[in-house]
């Protein structure tokens, strides 16, 4: 069914457009003037000025792996993060801990853990899904590299970025 859009009734001056055009020009000119006088400060000059100080608590930067207070890798390579990761950025090769290891009770730890940062979309689902609180999105955002291979964070890099996180998971405590 045809539907007629009611047009507003314009006065002669409005129909002439010119006054409005001048008004518009005045607005844009004001913005220009304020920029030139340095009154507006919206843009951040990136390498010199950085977000670091202003990053909110919930900021989601690069995903990293963390160790617990005893230096144990938290990750048990359950591969849930690999499963949930929407762009399939995570690739894990599971492995088992040797029986003489201090943490032998945990039995399992990743042999290799790669996050392809050229794929990662910083969604945080890996952190959300991890049953061991082993993967956290830290505040690193300047992830760069000169090749695709450079953009893959391997296990050591992930632990280096992640550091330690004293923790909430007590189930590997031998007494519990």
């Amino acid at each position: 069914m045809a539907y007629t859009v009611r047009r507003p009734n314009l006065t002669f001056w409005e129909k002439l457009y010119l006054p409005n055009i001048v008004a518009g020009l005045a607005i844009t000119f004001n913005h220009l003037k304020k920029m030139l006088k340095g009154e507006t400060h919206v843009v951040m000059q990136y390498p010199e000025e950085k977000w670091d100080a202003h990053l909110p608590e919930y900021y989601r930067g690069a995903p990293t792996l963390v160790t617990d207070e005893h230096g144990r890798e938290r990750c048990v390579s359950c591969q849930l993060c690999e499963f949930i990761c929407p762009p399939r950025a995570i690739k894990i090769t599971p492995g088992s801990l040797p029986s003489d290891s201090q943490f032998a009770k945990v039995e399992k730890a990743p042999e290799a853990f790669d996050i392809d940062m050229s794929r990662c979309i910083y969604c945080g689902l890996c952190e959300e899904v991890c049953p061991e609180q082993a993967i956290y999105l830290r505040k690193d955002y300047a992830v760069t590299g000169e090749s695709r291979a450079d953009m893959v964070h391997h296990k050591d890099k992930l632990y280096e970025l992640g550091g330690t996180m004293p923790g909430l998971v007590h189930k590997w405590n031998p007494d519990k």
């Binding site: 844009t28 913005h31 220009l32 304020k34 920029m35 030139l36 507006t40 919206v42 843009v43 000059q45």
Partner: peptide, 10 residues
């Protein structure tokens, strides 16, 4: 440059 300044950019 002008367009940037008009839009509060640099």
């Amino acid at each position: 440059r002008v367009s940037a300044l008009i839009q509060d950019r640099l």
